[in-house]
């Protein structure tokens, strides 16, 4: 097999100006189950799909509270997310302690971006293998940010990360106008769950066991709905299974070439070219071959050769 000489560490550029380790980190996000986030004028909703390693095991936590006004959803390596969320909690607390004011969402996001960037530039370190959606309500209103291991952060009206998240993004794009205008938290959650539902594979449904929802906004602190508490929101959906599972495979392809959100890739996706144009072309294709497919991942996987680190 072709061996890449430029991915032994995270500080060496390839001759084409790419940092492969960083790009692999972005791949790790895609191995995780999906997380969706969306904003109205006054609220931010996060919705995420939880996975359990096996039937008898517990589900991996996907949404973490940072402070009364802030929380994150993750896709990728959960341990990395725990380290980052711990760091954010400390930041939030010291802002309260030292300045008597809640940490602003933008400052929070930049502080972990700085940490991530450092890993892309210091020898012997590994970029974080996790993507985060950061939801916060502060002085300047409701905010949703996406964090990437590359150290880039961008603010979004709606965002989705993780496996098959392109489907969710498509849903959010189509419904953007209604989402932005809605005054009702309930509608916002339903839109979030609808988007999340579109990331499901054929034989999976949203249940109160595998769904996590959180809301933060004006007059309401960051609240997570898990387990039985999430049922009230699922009851409001017309269906808990993916409406568009017929063109499942197409979606998958689409998504693979898309989730790399640096500027280059965005252009590639809009022109909808094939996989080879993808960053880390060689690597990605091989990776997708060896790594378990998203589909097989969500369905029961008797072979058990799934990546341990997942989500």
């Amino acid at each position: 097999m072709f061996r890449n000489n430029y991915d032994n560490d995270s500080v060496t550029y390839s001759p084409t100006g790419r940092l492969f380790q960083v790009e692999y980190a972005l791949e790790a996000i895609k191995q995780g189950s999906a997380a969706v986030g969306l904003v109205s004028k006054s609220h931010v909703v996060l919705a995420a799909l939880k996975r359990n390693a096996e039937e008898l095991g517990s589900y991996q936590k996907k949404i973490i509270k940072i402070d009364d006004h802030m929380g994150i959803a993750l896709a990728g390596l959960a341990p990395d997310a725990r380290v980052l969320s711990n760091f954010l909690r400390k930041q939030a607390m010291s802002s309260k302690m030292i300045f008597n004011r809640p940490l602003s969402t933008s400052k929070a996001v930049l502080s972990i971006a700085d940490k991530a960037q450092e890993n892309t530039q210091s020898y012997g370190s590994r970029p974080y293998g996790v993507g985060l959606l950061i939801a916060g309500y502060d002085e300047t209103g409701a905010h949703l940010y996406e964090f990437q291991p590359s150290g880039s952060v961008l603010e979004y009206y709606g965002a989705a990360i993780g496996a098959r998240s392109q489907a969710a993004r498509t849903y959010l794009e189509r419904n953007l106008d209604t989402i932005l205008e809605t005054d009702s938290v309930e509608d916002l959650i339903v839109h979030g769950l609808n988007a999340l539902r579109d990331t499901l594979s054929q034989d999976v449904e949203l249940t109160f066991k595998n769904t996590s929802v959180s809301v933060v906004g004006k007059e309401s602190g960051f609240t997570i709905y898990d387990d039985e508490e999430v049922q009230q929101w699922l009851d409001k959906l017309d269906s808990v299974s993916n409406a568009r599972n017929r063109d499942d495979d197409d979606n998958d392809n689409n998504e693979d070439s898309n989730t790399n959100t640096n500027e280059e890739t965005t252009t590639t996706t809009t022109t909808n070219t094939n996989d080879n144009e993808n960053p880390a072309s060689e690597e990605t294709t091989t990776a997708t071959e060896t790594a378990p497919e998203d589909d097989t991942n969500t369905t029961t996987d008797p072979s058990g050769d799934r990546m341990e680190t997942d989500d």
């Binding site: 030292i98 300045f99 008597n100 933008s106 300047t140």
Partner: peptide, 21 residues
């Protein structure tokens, strides 16, 4: 540095808390 686009005002209670610490 962290609030170049404004919005998050540094107000008197924040300055006071900081100085007191």
């Amino acid at each position: 540095i962290y609030d170049s686009d404004g919005g998050h005002k540094l107000r008197a209670p924040h300055v006071h808390e900081y100085l007191s610490k």
